[in-house]
Computed example of a mutant assay.
Amino acid sequence: MSKSIKKIGVMTSGGDSPGMNAAIRAVVRTCAFHKVDCIGIYRGYQGLIEGDFKEMNARSVNNIVNKGGTILKSARSQEFRTVEGRKKAHSNAMEAGLDALVVIGGDGSFTGAMIFSQEFDFPVMGIPGTIDNDIYGTSSTLGYDTALNTVVEAIDKIRDTASSHNRLFFVEVMGRDVGHIALNAGVGAGAEEILIPEENLGKDRLLESLKRSRESGKTSSIVVVAEGDTTGENVFDLKDYVEQNLPEYEVRVSVLGHMQRGGSPSCWDRVLASRMGVKAVESLLDGKSNYMVGIQDSKITLCPIDQAVKGKTDIDLELLRVSDIMTT
């Protein structure tokens, strides 16, 4: 992988996240700064298989730093999971003169990049774009900060109506495997209880917490639930359980869903995307490959992409303790 890099492809893959456009902009403009050609690949790996390419320059990415989603679109490709599909993708990459690839996405996207690189000795670099913040090797992924702010704003509004009607609201947020959004947004929004996959507190503990809240004089409550929490079968099961055991509560459920992925990225995500995009391109030009760009202790770092795929993120246990104290 020591060949000279003269043309770099950039794609977004998997679920979209705020900050992806800012990262695309950074990759394209860093290529322009170093006089390297840049090709935008539409619809992720499926676009790579179908040759859905477009030449990009510094002006191609005007006015996108503030936009959510991804101008390059995204798609999940079953065909790329096959050897034949990856051969088509490589053939198109060679025909287009691509020397390296920047993949913006999550662990599934990085797995595809890693396999592609191994099979064809093709340089790749990953940028973590996912609101769940569940990628090992970085303290923050693109879109996570924006999603937190979106969730906190939504919970603040839900609390207004909860207080007005003396209601208990279960608010479900994204986080199938990890509870970073639920935990941080729950503390930030002052939730009375936070349910996450990493800590199954059980239904009895939930009831006791809600009873204490009621006895302490609280007339309304917010419980933030990560979608992967296993306290109940689902958030509606929890609602039914509380209504059966604490009939004094009027219970409602609000599932925030995909609104968490949308919206204009926060300043933090825009700056992070810009720093990561520059690092990704310049690392490829320095001859590096099979890394993910991350951030640790405010410094931009490189993590071997196989570690990013295989590693697991840890929940902040200190924040759990803070949450318990705040619900007193």
Rank of each mutant, 00 (worst) to 15 (best):
242 V>T: 02
95 E>L: 11
14 G>M: 14
246 L>C: 10
112 G>D: 00
139 S>I: 04
297 D>E: 14
168 L>D: 03
135 I>E: 00
260 Q>S: 06
243 E>R: 08
197 P>Y: 10
110 F>R: 00
133 N>Q: 07
166 N>S: 15
293 V>A: 05
148 L>M: 13
82 T>F: 11
218 K>W: 03
298 S>H: 10
241 Y>A: 01
242 V>M: 02
143 G>C: 04
41 I>M: 09
307 Q>T: 07
117 S>A: 15
101 L>Y: 09
149 N>K: 09
23 A>Q: 03
163 S>Q: 10
86 R>H: 07
173 V>W: 03
168 L>Q: 05
61 V>L: 15
90 H>R: 12
49 I>F: 05
124 V>G: 11
228 G>L: 05
1 M>K: 12
305 I>D: 00
75 A>C: 14
152 V>A: 06
7 K>P: 08
183 L>Y: 06
196 I>W: 10
17 S>P: 11
39 I>E: 07
303 C>F: 01
181 I>Q: 01
28 V>A: 12
188 G>A: 15
63 N>H: 13
131 I>K: 02
220 S>M: 00
215 E>P: 02
7 K>T: 15
8 I>H: 02
42 Y>C: 13
37 D>W: 02
308 A>F: 00
18 P>L: 06
238 L>S: 05
50 E>C: 07
132 D>E: 09
81 R>H: 12
159 R>C: 11
282 E>D: 10
38 C>P: 05
94 M>G: 09
241 Y>S: 03
108 G>D: 12
88 K>Y: 09
312 K>E: 11
18 P>F: 02
108 G>S: 12
323 S>Y: 04
201 L>F: 03
69 G>R: 06
227 E>W: 05
